[in-house]
């Protein structure tokens, strides 16, 4: 991150967010005090073990759930429990099967009342970038998994809201398609410079794409480590072979292993 970006205003700020599920009698604390920041134009990743409440965190930011305590601030204003402030890509693509790809992609704009003609023009432009040209009038079930993910990504990209929340967009893809998609996302993001909060399990992916990485602990989760990724932009995939990248990766891997071990309650993998 260069100096100009360091001074960029804070887009999203979570402070001391807590959330439990289940009744009063036997609450299951899922999020136990998460604080983090996304600056304007910053790519922030969130990695954490499965079940640590990453999707739940997005549901809180999107206003689907209300936090038990803590604040969600967007552009400085508290938005706890308010909906319709973010662009969102859910963990499953969730394209509407009865809508063509083009109509799916403009859904967020349609809901927010943007003029259709403009939206479609914008959609065509980005669909071409996403390798979806020629599929404007196709229905989702005729597309491959990777193409559906890209369509869902374009849908969140076209959202009129600046902040994009992407929930493990590539988790369902095979390794090869995945690395292709990472390169593609890197490209598009460096061009648009939207504020992004990105959830992933994948350490390399986080290091390749992000300006900042937060590591979540196991349930009840808190943001326990904040790592600034030093590689300059524009980035190429080649950085994944540099010693600096490898040492960061090792550090993160160890951190994650420890968390996974703690959250499954096993003293160590070998004693299992």
């Amino acid at each position: 991150m260069n100096d100009r970006e360091k001074e960029a205003p804070v887009k999203l700020e979570l402070s001391g967010l807590r959330k439990s599920f289940g009744g009063k009698r036997k609450p299951l604390p899922v999020i136990g005090g998460v604080s983090l920041q996304v600056r304007k134009g910053e790519f922030v990743s969130l990695i954490g073990p499965s079940g640590s409440g990453k999707s739940t965190l997005f549901h809180l930011i999107g206003g689907l759930l209300k936090p038990d305590s803590g604040e969600i601030r967007l552009d400085g204003r508290v938005i706890n429990g308010e909906r319709g402030h973010i662009g969102y890509m859910p963990q499953q693509p969730a394209l509407f099967p009865w809508r063509t790809i083009e109509d799916n992609v403009v859904l967020d704009r349609e809901v927010n009342g943007a003029p259709r003609r403009e939206s479609l023009e914008e959609a065509r432009r980005w669909m071409e970038r996403a390798g979806l040209a020629g599929f404007e009038k196709a229905y989702p079930h005729t597309l491959s998994g990777g193409m559906q993910q890209r369509a869902a990504f374009v849908r969140s990209l076209l959202s009129p809201h600046e902040l994009m929340c992407l929930d493990e967009p590539f988790s369902a893809l095979d390794a090869f398609t995945r690395s292709e998609m990472q390169a593609w996302l890197l490209d598009i993001w460096e061009e648009t410079r939207r504020s992004v909060l990105f959830v992933t399990h994948h350490i390399e992916e986080a290091l390749l794409l992000s300006d900042t990485i937060y590591v979540l602990s196991g349930r009840p989760s808190e943001a326990m480590r904040r790592i600034e990724v030093p590689f300059p932009r524009p980035r190429r995939e080649e950085i994944t072979e540099t010693p600096e990248f490898l040492s960061l990766r090792r550090e993160l891997t160890n951190l994650m292993k420890e968390e996974q071990r703690k959250s499954t309650g096993m003293p160590s993998a070998r004693q299992n």
Binding site: F58, H59, G62, G63, L64, R83, G84, H85, I86, G87, Y88, P90, A94, L107, D108, V111, N112, S159
Partner: peptide, 8 residues
Amino acid sequence: NYMRMIGA
């Protein structure tokens, strides 16, 4: 959930 999150 998607529809709710985008403010429908």
